[in-house]
């Protein structure tokens, strides 16, 4: 089945099986490995991307359902070579250890900050409850998202 999806501003067309999950379309068909593939059960959030500006666990959506949609992956956060504030935050605050959950954490974190520029630490804690980290205990991740909240000066188009 022919599918065309705009990912990070670039149109991608492929002939795929309708059963192809969005995460595999991104990682395998398009060879974009920034989006991680974790639990496969929509629990861990490592595969979180934005579809038309809203976060989606891409292991639980068919790629054909994204036909005509605008998808943003972690690769789309960089603008003109400059890191997004959420990426700066994870760098400055050491918001990762193994890095497996990081792409999903950043997509969720940036979305949370966009939704509510005054989001509290407690609201962030709840906001990332669908993204699981097995290394850090979350403190530095919360610090990183708060950094993005406090430095959200560059623009990201959803």
């Amino acid at each position: 089945m022919q599918v065309s999806v705009n990912i990070n501003g670039v149109e991608h067309s492929r002939d795929i099986e309708p059963r192809t999950l969005l995460v595999h379309f991104i990682r395998d068909d398009l060879q974009m490995r920034g989006t991680h593939w974790g639990c496969d059960t929509s629990n861990c959030g490592a595969c979180t991307v934005w579809v038309d500006g809203a976060p989606v666990k891409s292991c639980t959506m068919l790629a054909v359902q994204a036909e005509g949609a605008e998808v943003t992956t972690v690769e789309g956060l960089v603008k003109d070579g400059a890191l997004d504030p959420i990426q700066e935050g994870f760098t400055e605050c050491h918001g990762l250890q193994c890095g497996y959950c990081t792409p999903g954490m950043m997509m969720t974190g940036r979305w949370l900050v966009d939704q509510n520029p005054n989001i509290t630490r407690e609201e962030i804690r709840e906001g990332i409850s669908g993204n699981i980290c097995r290394c850090t205990g979350y403190k530095n991740i919360l610090d990183a998202i708060e950094y993005a909240r406090d430095h959200a000066n560059s623009e990201v188009s959803a």
Partner: peptide, 9 residues
Amino acid sequence: IADPIVRMR
């Protein structure tokens, strides 16, 4: 119910 991302869709 579930988590904020799942609740979006």
